Simulated scan of single mutants.
Amino acid sequence: MLPTAWSGAQIALSPQEIEQWPKTASARTLADGWPSRRLASFRVPTLERAVPVCRQLARLWMDSADITDEGVRCAALLVISELMTNAIVHTNSISITGRLQKDGDWLLVEVQDEGETSSDPHPHRGGNANEYGRGLVVVAQSAQALGTQLETDGGRTFWARISLTG
């Protein structure tokens, strides 16, 4: 039995699992293949250490979904990293949900927070010397479409569409 909560293609990782990753039963199970090739959904606590775990989860799902194009993979990993980081840094969320879904010729990447943002996120066009504030600009350059949706529970979902056809 896995120590995580599973619902179809959804996984919820605890803070302890994030800290011990990849030495967990969940990591070993997912290494054998994601439960769904069409959709991945994972909920993680708002810990900085969760970002590289989410990248690994995205890699494992893309492997299972036969997404092999390195350009698509790099774009998806960059997008999930930036959106997860923004949710951790700019919200008061307890947990964040990441989703990846194949939709025809598109890969949809979503990150949903629980709301209560410290500021309204928007792209900053700063100089190269700025270490922070360029995440959404980088995401916009890596995706063919980018948007946000307010959820009924007060949370917000940021999404990006990446072409699977190059």
Rank of each mutant, 00 (worst) to 15 (best):
T4M: 06
L30D: 06
G133N: 08
H122D: 06
Q112H: 06
G166T: 08
A9W: 08
S93A: 15
T165Q: 03
R99G: 11
G126I: 00
T24C: 12
L150G: 02
F158W: 14
S7K: 01
D103W: 12
V137H: 12
W34A: 07
G133V: 06
S64W: 01
P22N: 06
R43S: 06
R59G: 01
T117D: 01
W159F: 15
L57G: 08
L100Q: 11
G98K: 06
S14Q: 08
Q101N: 00
E70W: 03
S14L: 07
T46C: 13
G155P: 02
G8S: 07
E17T: 13
T165D: 02
A25H: 14
V139G: 02
G147N: 12
R73Y: 12
V109L: 09
W61S: 00
Y132S: 05
E17P: 04
H122T: 06
E19W: 08
E116S: 05
G115R: 12
W6R: 14
P123D: 07
S36G: 08
A129E: 15
W34I: 05
V111G: 13
S41P: 04
T29R: 13
S41H: 03
D103L: 12
I67S: 01
V109S: 11
G135P: 10
A140S: 08
E110W: 03
E70N: 11
G166I: 03
V51K: 10
E82I: 02
S64C: 06
N92W: 04
A50T: 05
E151A: 01
M62C: 03
D153V: 03
S14G: 12
L57Y: 08
G115N: 12
D153L: 01
A129N: 15
N92Y: 03
K102E: 09
H124P: 12
G115P: 09
Q56D: 14
T157V: 10
Y132W: 15
V137G: 10
T148V: 13
